[in-house]
């Protein structure tokens, strides 16, 4: 879903008399701070990022190795001993059936993968989309129509289907091109296809913005002074676009996190022994009868992170563009 954001008037035009005189960014920040839900969401995201960064330290402090097998936690069937997937003092969120590996530890390590894919995916798609959108909007002419047509073509493809179909052969091709085998190649593939199918939305948004901005007085003025394209892009256009780019990126990041999980459910994604939320969910699917806790824990964790990003993104959008209505909730 693209962000339907038609405002080309920046925040200053809103008549909030009390804070006239503040810069747009400080204004937005002030508005964001007032949005309790968004602030909470922001802290939740920070919490996950913290855990992801310090996963190795945290797991070793609390003795929650994500790889160590624990035969003692399993019965003869290989299922966790005890209630709720073997939740115990040693294993606060239970153990993985079959191996007895600690679920909390695996969740912590998994946060790294999920966030890594989320952040890299977002940065790359946003970057590509931004550049192509700018070029398209500024240059017009042939280049513009080529980019627009390629965008149309990209959108005409059933993306999930192609991602699944091309997974194995393209990962192999990547490996044969010298990308390190295994999970590195798999992650590269995921980010690659996310970019191929994801840049369009960003590019369209930016193109539309650039098309309207380039006609505005301040750009024309700069141009009439003989400003170079570089100057116009960096000094005139980008400062007026950054807010929307950040909002858009924040709102698309949780999508990538969820996509990674869904792909793992379909058997595409990282390989064991690496822990990712997606592989955990993909594995737990088989246990929905025997050990439902094992499915619920990574599922709910994933939901919380995705929701936090969404709420934070909403808050950001409202802060940047107060015409949208949600802040009055």
């Amino acid at each position: 879903m693209t962000v339907s954001n038609t405002s080309d008037d920046n925040a200053m035009t809103v008549g909030d008399t009390a804070i006239v005189g503040l810069s747009p960014s400080r204004l937005a920040l002030a508005r964001f701070r007032r949005d309790k839900v968004a602030v909470i969401a922001f802290f939740v995201v920070c919490f996950f990022v913290f855990i992801a960064i310090f996963a190795p330290v945290l797991t070793s402090i609390f003795n929650l190795s994500p790889y160590a097998l624990d035969r003692q936690a399993l019965n003869d069937y290989g299922n966790p001993i005890g209630y709720f997937g073997g939740i115990s003092w040693n294993h606060p969120l239970g153990v993985e059936p079959g191996t007895g590996r600690d679920i909390l530890g695996r969740l912590m390590y998994g946060a790294r993968v999920s966030l890594l894919i989320g952040f890299i995916g977002t940065i790359v798609t946003t970057g590509v989309g931004l550049v192509l959108g700018m070029v398209s909007g500024l240059r017009r002419g042939l280049l513009d129509s080529v980019i627009t047509r390629v965008a149309d073509l990209t959108l005409a493809f059933p993306s999930l289907l192609l991602i699944i179909a091309l997974n194995r052969p393209l990962t192999q091709r990547l490996e044969s091109m010298g990308v390190p085998k295994g999970n590195f190649a798999r992650m590269t593939y995921i980010i690659l296809v996310l970019t191929v199918f994801g840049w369009v939305y960003m590019a369209r948004l930016i193109r539309g913005q650039v098309l309207s901005l380039r006609e505005r007085e301040f750009v024309e003025a700069a141009r009439s002074f003989g400003a170079s394209n570089t100057h116009i892009v960096f000094k005139e256009l980008l400062p007026n676009l950054w807010a929307q780019v950040i909002v858009f990126a924040t709102l698309s990041l949780p999508g990538y996190v969820a996509v990674e999980a869904s792909l793992s459910f379909l058997g595409i994604g990282l390989m064991a022994p690496a822990a990712s939320w997606g592989t955990m969910l993909g594995d737990s699917v088989r246990y929905y009868r025997a050990d439902p806790t094992y499915l619920l824990i990574p599922g709910v964790t994933l939901m919380i992170l995705v929701m936090a990003f969404n709420l934070m993104g909403d808050g950001l959008r409202d802060a940047v563009d107060p015409k949208s209505d949600r802040q009055q909730l």
Binding site: E96, G98, T99, G267, M271, A272, P273, T279, G282, D283
Partner: peptide, 8 residues
Amino acid sequence: ELWAKLIS
């Protein structure tokens, strides 16, 4: 799926 676990 099982082998994904066994391999570790």
